[in-house]
């Protein structure tokens, strides 16, 4: 409750203020060191990952399912508790934060999900405003007393993702592509300093997938925040990312430009070669 109405500086933060400006000279948004995760003792999913993510640009993580891509992303905002390792985000080690500290950190980390994860029975605009829940008290949330600049911003963002006329539709009336647009808008409502996207296009058709990736890359570019996206479609990832990270069995086996990705790398990441043409 203590962060009720986080002061007059908040609205300013909503508009594309460069998070990087707060950390002059620091070009790394996220620094992961020795990240290790096992769900069951002895079965490591992430085997001591090191990863630095720059303050801007799209980073795509590719790799077969079950290789720990999703776990890696969820460790960053601790939806999954890492077993050990450090995750330094804006100078703070997220793994060491208290519950309140973690909530404050999560407000700055937007997340987009494979299954959209909207609250189906709420309207589209309310789903967007859910992105502000970290900034208002539960009592205000209960009575829907969102600050007027949040409401303005929500409608503005809804226009930006092209759903301006669906504000009062219930989320379960939308198509997959529309839902994911709402999911992206909700994440951006947080005024995040980084955007995580966990397989955002896996439930969508190829055309919509491209549109969603395009939208996410463009909006994150406008805000000048970095995006980390898990994606199993290598071509789609290469098209929108400036950097590709290939994961295999809990390790990073490729880290570089999309253009540098060869069949040899893909063979190493996904195993086998019959599927390569």
């Amino acid at each position: 409750m203590s962060e009720t109405g986080s002061g007059p500086t908040e609205p300013e933060n909503l508009r594309g203020k460069r998070p990087a400006d707060n950390f002059v000279g620091e070009e790394t948004a996220l620094k992961i060191r020795g990240l290790f995760k096992e769900y069951r003792p002895g079965v490591a999913v992430l085997k001591g990952l090191d990863l630095d993510v720059d303050c801007r640009g799209v980073t795509a993580i590719i790799g077969p399912s079950g290789t720990g891509k999703s776990t890696l992303l969820r460790c960053i905002n601790r939806l999954v508790e890492p077993t050990s390792g450090e995750i330094i985000f804006e100078g703070e080690d997220i793994t060491k934060l208290s519950r309140a500290g973690l909530r404050r950190a999560r407000r700055k980390i937007g997340m987009v999900f494979q299954e959209y994860n909207l609250v189906e029975r709420l309207s589209v605009i309310e789903n967007l405003l859910c992105g502000r829940l970290g900034y208002i008290s539960p009592l205000k949330a209960w009575f829907r007393k969102f600050p007027s600049q949040d409401i303005d911003h929500a409608f503005e963002l809804l226009d930006k993702v092209g759903l301006g006329d669906l504000a009062y539709q219930r989320a379960d009336n939308l198509s997959g592509g529309q839902r994911q647009r709402v999911g992206i808008a909700r994440a951006l409502m947080q005024a995040p300093h980084i955007l995580l996207a966990d397989e955002p296009t896996s439930s969508l058709d190829p055309k919509t997938s491209v549109e969603i990736m395009e939208l996410m890359a463009r909006l994150a570019g406008d805000l000048d925040i970095p995006v980390i996206v898990n994606i199993h479609d290598v071509a789609l990832g290469s098209r929108f990312a400036q950097r590709i990270i290939g994961m295999s069995e809990g390790n990073i086996v490729y880290d570089g430009l999309p253009s540098g990705l060869t069949d040899t790398h893909l063979k190493e990441i996904y195993g086998g070669e019959d599927w390569l043409q």
Partner: peptide, 13 residues
């Protein structure tokens, strides 16, 4: 639980 997870991820109390 996905919806719940998403709200947790926004830092909601």
């Amino acid at each position: 639980m996905g919806s719940v997870e998403a709200l947790k991820a926004t830092g909601a109390p």
